[in-house]
Design a protein around this nucleic acid. Structure first.
Lengths: 231, 231
DNA sequence: TTGATACTTCGGTCGTTTTCGAAGCATTGT
DNA sequence: ACAATGCTTCGAAAACGACCGAAGTATCAA
């Protein structure tokens, strides 16, 4: 098949409302069952099954069989990035929201994961705190960790250089998933920060949901390390 | 309309073979007439017209009326990036090609523009030369200009800081358009470099095509400034 | 073994979309 | 004014794909 035909095929897969719902539902990086995805998209299990097969065959999803459940997840970060880039066009009002840089109410009411990094108020609060502290600079479609940010992250135990070496180079970018109306830190650095928070026990998944809760220790650490202020 | 519906609508627009052809045909950043796009996609003018209207309405394209021609171009770099991110999924074998870092044959047979930066052998040769010289580091999905690269570009008259300030921050990334089988420098730095080459008269558009030719002076400058070796 | 749950496959209907011929506008050139 | 060119609108035919009911397979729990 020609490259152009494959291009159209991939885009067409994302271009059905039902499949689009599923893809966006998987944007938090977790694996969902076929039934959950069917319900999410508001279609029957039969239809969902067909859609999921097609998306898996095309390399958009991977599936993991576990008992009588089949867990589906996005096949790669590249797929998540594709979804986000489409969303950027579809919902420009989100992308247009400026990254605020002054101090503000960082109420930490809800946190969630978004593919591989932190989103929700938690994600926004951490991102804001890093920016306020001069550790991070985030533009409309790219970002950079400052020298002080490197020091800070290194002191917290996150090896930016290792992250950079594994991926292409440092990849820092704003994420615009639309449950949050403000950009928050994604990319390799966002992912590293997220897994570090889990590893340190600062945050925990709320069982059965995509939400994360901040542990008491996590609240203290986030405040002391990154200056994240809790409401 | 819900965000999800808009998402699906945008993706579906890219998901038709004819429209996909047109979008990819516009990836070099130039404006093409409706007839040219129709021919490119292999469809009649009527069909093309309908497609172009829809894509323009959806914000994917902008149109400029000039006499009895209507010139269509991608509406924004964000659209180009969306197209590229879809292509990344559709043609993974291109993305998987490693960025070569050793010295090599930098035959400079053909150059073209790709949306807003240089592609073709010219784009690849410049990118390679920058990497070889330690001025640029380019990974799978992000890149960075090194300190020596900043000095080099500044000496050549390209103000990286100004570029960075205009866009979010420095945005350096590999581009994977599929006429070239190797990544080349895109992003804000790639765009700045490209326009600088035009401004300095190092390269010129070949009338009526998307190709650029390197002027004799350009060949000398590129060799002396960036170490680009011409075959 | 029996029944329930999770999911897939089959088959047919129905709505959407793409397509192009034909006709209609607008602009340019003579 | 008239014809030619570039493009759009209209209308109808054809193709495609999404959908769900029904039936089939696999796993789990008694």
């Amino acid at each position: 098949m020609s490259n152009n035909a494959r291009f159209a095929e991939i885009a067409a897969l994302a271009g059905d409302p039902g499949r689009a719902s599923m893809l966006n539902g998987l944007m938090d990086g977790r694996a969902l069952t076929a039934s959950e995805l069917a319900q999410l998209a508001g279609i029957t299990a039969q239809s969902a099954s067909s859609h999921l097969t097609r998306m898996t065959d095309a390399g958009l999803l991977t599936v993991e069989k576990q008992g009588r459940h089949r867990y589906h997840r996005l096949a790669s970060p590249a797929v998540a990035q594709m979804i986000e880039s489409i969303m950027r066009i579809a919902a420009p009002e989100i992308a247009a929201k400026p990254v605020r840089t002054g101090p503000r109410d960082t109420a930490l009411r809800a946190g969630r994961t978004c593919y591989d990094h932190l989103a929700g108020h938690l994600g926004v609060a951490i991102t804001d705190a890093l920016i306020d502290g001069g550790h991070l600079e985030l533009g409309l479609d790219a970002g950079e960790v400052t020298e002080s940010g490197r020091v800070l992250l290194a002191r917290a135990g996150i090896d930016i250089e290792a992250v950079a070496a594994r991926r292409g180079r440092i990849l820092c970018r704003p994420c615009l998933d639309w449950s949050e109306r403000r950009p928050h830190l994604a990319g390799a650095v966002g992912a590293a920060l997220c897994s570090h928070c889990f590893d340190q026990g600062w945050i925990r998944r709320v069982a059965g949901t995509r939400a994360v809760s901040v542990t008491p220790n996590g609240q203290r650490q986030l405040r002391e390390t990154f200056g994240v202020i809790l409401a």
